[in-house]
Amino acid sequence: MIPESFAYSAPTTLDEALALLQEHGDEAKILAGGHSLIPMMKLRFASPTHLIDINNIPGLSYVKEEDGYLKIGAMTKEVEVEESDIIHNKYQIFIDATKLIADPQVRNFGTLGGNLAHGDAANDHPAVMIALGAEIEITGQEGKRTVGIDDFFHGFYTTAVDEGEVLTEIRIPAASGNYGSAYHKAERKVGDYATAGVAAMVQIDDQGRCTRAGIGLTNVSPLPLRAKRSEEVLIGSDLSESVIEQAAQYASEDCSPSEDLRGNEEYKRHLVKVITKRMLKKAISRAK
């Protein structure tokens, strides 16, 4: 399968890329890892007339802690996250998630920025970013702006990244104190999108009270979903078995999965409940 014809540019600076985006408007698309875009172009679900490859722009790929944030450059590849020491030591949720995203060859190319900018509720990083309370830095010709993750996903394949803009950085409030996070998705086979997935983050004070909690759900609603009632019941609690049970119950009630080849609605709600419980327990044990 071969995509429709397009023109190709590979700028070496962000300014050049932004100028090209401006010039070509909605006919143009950014090419990051290409592992969502090229398959869509081969199937002719997408037919941009101009591809702007941003792989040759230096400085968009890093994982670092700075100013109270974990900062991840938009062009950081899944494999680079998997192999980062900071991630291994403090943000194990990414180890859980990347292992379940596609396969090693895809992870050699797919970028975190692309995974979010693609705007697909079936992708795994959106739920992770919701649980961790990420902010997304978007750069346009007028400068930079920051959007909270809850305002980032607008609809199927649409996000807060407007025409003429590039997603440049992901910022996550840095782990501090007793902090733990975990992700799991049920999938039919390696490389499949989630039947249902749950990301969980908790922070616990020295008395054992939960001071922060985040729960994000993958592929069980039209947009990546924050399980708000679940978070509310966790924050301020002692994270007892019954609190976890209640949080999991709320998550299963508040999502809106649709029946497809991966399962019916009831099954998916059940998965959300079971995985929420397990991921909360895993995050709590990692926090301790």
């Binding site: 590979a10 290409g34 592992h35 090229i38 490859d53 895809v106 190319f109």
Partner: peptide, 13 residues
């Protein structure tokens, strides 16, 4: 040196 699925990469890349 990195393994890649060559059906999902453009020759120009």
């Amino acid at each position: 040196g990195k393994s890649a699925k060559s059906c999902t990469i453009l020759a120009v890349q």
